[in-house]
């Protein structure tokens, strides 16, 4: 007599839909791509679809690659910012003679050349400091689910916002707002937390520590716009 297995053992398992493939990593994290094409594609992805781009950033792994990305885009932004300051600070300083520091008119040209040269080092240092501060507030709000490396990687790609400095005059203000928005999206995506929790971790330190800086930027923008309005016939 043939020994058959019980009937249930022959039963087909219920058909499950195949799991969707994970989204590909962002181009900058793909070592098979040439770095220039990857840089451009990554910048485009973060500018056009930041949420999807952050969701494609690996939570763990090499920190040097995102750091190099941050240094490159930070350098480009700082380069243009220095160029605009050297070119236009005299003109803007004449419009706002009471605000020499805000218009950059009080600073010698050598300062801006030094900033251009030191931008990579200052970007790296600033990233470490801001990552420590951001991670502390993520921990306070219970949002640091994927560790310090995830915070650091998110902040590296947030540096895309410094490319707003390529735009003269209003680039710094737009960049400042873009940094906050991208930080919220980045922390939310990389730590897998709600947008509200990420916003709290980003905005509370900004309000606590940089309230004065934010207000100064707004007042400077308002003064600049009102001056432009006054010049309009």
């Amino acid at each position: 007599m043939e020994d058959h297995p019980p009937h249930d053992a022959w039963a087909q398992p219920p058909m499950e839909p195949p799991a969707p493939p994970p989204p590909p990593v962002i181009p900058w994290e793909d070592p098979s791509r040439p770095w220039t094409a990857a840089l451009v594609a990554t910048i485009g992805a973060f500018i056009t679809h930041p949420r999807q781009a952050f969701e494609r950033v690996p939570v763990r792994g090499d920190v040097l690659r995102p750091l190099v990305f941050a240094i490159l885009v930070g350098w480009i932004g700082q380069f243009f910012y220095a160029i605009w300051e050297i070119s236009f600070s005299g003109m803007v300083g004449a419009m706002l003679p009471d605000q020499p520091m805000l218009t950059g008119a009080a600073l010698p040209r050598g300062y801006w050349f030094a900033m251009m040269a030191l931008a990579p080092l200052l970007t790296a240092t600033g990233l470490i400091v801001s990552a420590c501060l951001s991670h502390l507030f993520l921990l306070l709000f219970g949002g640091a689910r994927n560790g310090f490396v995830a915070t650091f990687r998110a902040l590296c790609y947030v540096q895309v916002a410094t490319l707003a400095l390529v735009v003269p005059f209003c680039g710094a203000y737009a960049g400042g707002i873009a940094v906050l928005v991208l930080e919220i999206i980045g922390f939310s995506a990389l730590h897998r937390i709600s947008t509200g929790k990420a916003a709290a971790a980003v905005l509370v330190p900004a309000m606590l520590c940089c309230a004065c800086v934010s207000v100064v930027i707004m007042l400077a923008g308002a003064a600049f716009l009102s001056t432009l309005g006054g010049l309009t016939p």
Binding site: R60, G61, D62, V63, L64, L67, L118, L121, L122, A124, T125, L127, I128, V129, F148, V149, F152
Partner: peptide, 21 residues
């Protein structure tokens, strides 16, 4: 991990730069 060593190196470089500046 290698990430820890990279972060520590970046931090040391940043601190040295800040000190020189």
């Amino acid at each position: 991990t290698d990430d820890d060593r990279t972060l520590a190196a970046v931090l040391a470089g940043g601190a040295a730069t800040t000190a020189v500046l």
